[in-house]
Write a protein that binds this DNA or RNA. Structure first.
Lengths: 342, 342
DNA sequence: TTGTAAGCGTTATCAG
DNA sequence: CTGATAACGCTTACAA
């Protein structure tokens, strides 16, 4: 059942059927009606594949994200979809499982599927074959949340540095004097930016009593890193909420009470953080909005407009809940800087 | 840059290039090498669109799920993808936002995108236009987790009834005498099946002191329904983990301690439940496995095999954590059955 | 306003 | 083993 059957049933040529579908106003009312009846009767739907082949426009955009199971990434995706679906686009979303090779492979697959645009949240700190693959492929691309710094593509992200700096400043202001920063994957752009924010705050306030530990962006990593702490500081800053929650768990096991003995903060304000006990003080990222913006930027690219702003940075908010307690801790005299890599 | 450019560069016909790609063994070693060099040199990748148009096989399967942001649905999707990607399939996943009309619309869109198969997790209890749309479309379909009972399609799900029955039995055995069941969307197949499990347990043990309240599958719903409870029972059974967690929050606010005053159980064993305070006792569903099975069933359909088992039901486990306390409560003499609809 | 026909990039059939 | 050519279903000049 194709355009030919419709034409036959309606007693017109296939071009007329095509016109009824694509520019009805250019067809006489009589034929238009006849064709519509035929379409209805047969339950005809145009074959998008053929259409794409002919027009060169697939109306499909692809997403590449590190983990298809992580709600934060999917909220971004939803933001972008909500913008782009009004423009008539369909979506293919692929997860790399944080694997660079998979990322390259998916990129190739999407390209041969002729997607018109791709929104990428990077899986690693570098991907050496990335540039080569997209080179003169004609796809429009945007980085979302994370980017490869050596690749010049529009980027929509969040001010990670300012976010962590802000919440660390808040800790200093509320009387904390010693700190530990629990980082996520140290090669990712977001981990680097966040750590930078922490360091800026330390410098700015002349704090020397801090530790930096590297692990992953997971609950388990937060838990393990905390157990490796050389001493328990006044405040623990998690690379994200999961890490912070893991830290709280470890702290509890070690007999420390949060926030009475130690304050803990995170980054993300993920769905569950407000329900955790005690509710987590953290940095809220405009995740959905970030995706929405990325969708918008891609749309501009897609419609041939010039992008004036190659980089769009969204700001964050501190959300104060129950894991930070105002204190006036004595300096415990720990000034050594430590790095532990998990 | 297409198959023609490759042919030209290699000095062969386009059929030879096509053969090198699709059945290399049928081409002489010499030409094969020449063509491969040319492909390499140009960075050529076959146009899937054209290929699909010609062969009629797109190698794409679609997913329709109620909420693209819910990790549980995405874990199912991942299960199915993990199975199907080894067979060379790509994926389009669409979320309906629990909206039936959107569901129908997406179905149509997927069909005109010529996906070969669709895995559906239903958004409602009924969708009147569903059957009409897929009628003689030729797509292979499978229901996953939830189904429309009036539509005869293969179904892969979980034994909701047995799961809730099991955990309610457990509550009875541990000395609980009065109960409240907090249901999710009452028209969905899973909500119905779960409630049935609760009722079976009540009947079986001759318990008459129970309340059933209807709301949604959300934290907020659990919270609100709990506040509407006519009396506080020994145990609250949540329609899922979110509902249970909401119930705990409300209970705490109302001055009851879980599990000392009231026991609470959920259903799902979602990611966060093990970290909640106190850690939630719940029913573990084999979510990933369910998706994997659905992928397998769809694959059988796709490869033209006969499906012997139209219905595949996976079993659940109870996971006992900290929200249930063994007790020997006196019957508080509440025998009235109440229904509250949110 | 309508129809004819070319062509999008492949694969498949058929000769050679 | 290789090449010419038709066809997949559609859109779009161009002609009528």
């Amino acid at each position: 059942m194709n355009i030919r059957s419709v034409a036959q049933l309606a007693g017109v040529s296939i071009s007329t059927v095509s016109r009824v579908i694509n520019s009805p106003e250019s067809v006489s009312e009589e034929l238009r009606e006849r064709v519509r009846k035929a379409i209805e009767q047969l339950g005809y739907r145009p074959n998008q594949i053929a259409r794409s082949l002919r027009t060169g426009s697939t109306k499909v955009v692809g997403f590449i994200i590190p983990d298809i199971t992580n709600p934060a990434f999917l909220l971004m995706v939803k933001g972008a979809e909500d913008y782009l679906k009004r423009k008539g686009y369909m979506f293919i979303v692929c997860g790399t499982d944080h694997n660079i090779e998979e990322e390259t492979k998916l990129l190739k697959t999407l390209l041969s599927q002729s997607v018109e645009g791709i929104i990428v949240t990077c899986s690693g700190g570098r991907n050496s074959s990335f540039a080569k693959v997209i080179q003169n492929s004609g796809v429009k691309m945007v980085f979302m949340d994370r980017r490869y710094e050596d690749i010049d593509l529009p980027y929509v992200g969040v001010d990670n540095t300012a976010g962590v700096e802000k919440i660390t400043d808040f800790l200093v202001k509320t009387g904390h004097r010693s700190f530990a920063y629990l980082s996520g994957e140290r090669n990712t752009s977001s981990a680097k930016e966040r750590l930078r924010g922490f360091m800026k705050s330390m410098k700015k306030h002349g704090v020397e009593d801090y530790q930096v530990l590297y692990g992953r962006f997971t609950f388990e990593s937060g838990y393990e890193l905390t157990k490796k702490l050389k001493k328990i500081p006044d405040a623990v800053v998690g690379g994200n909420d999961l890490v912070a929650l893991g830290a709280i768990e470890a702290l509890n096991e070690m007999g420390y009470h949060v926030p009475d003995d130690v304050s803990v903060v995170g980054f993300d304000d993920m769905f569950y953080s407000k329900y955790s006990k005690p509710a987590l003080t953290t940095v809220r990222q405009p995740i959905y909005e970030m995706g929405y913006m990325a969708g918008k930027v891609l749309w501009q690219l897609l419609s041939g407009k010039n992008i004036k702003k190659r980089v769009t940075i969204l700001q964050t908010d501190i959300v104060v809940r129950e894991t930070v307690k105002e204190r006036n801790a004595p300096n415990r005299g720990f000034t050594e800087k430590v790095e532990v890599v998990l």
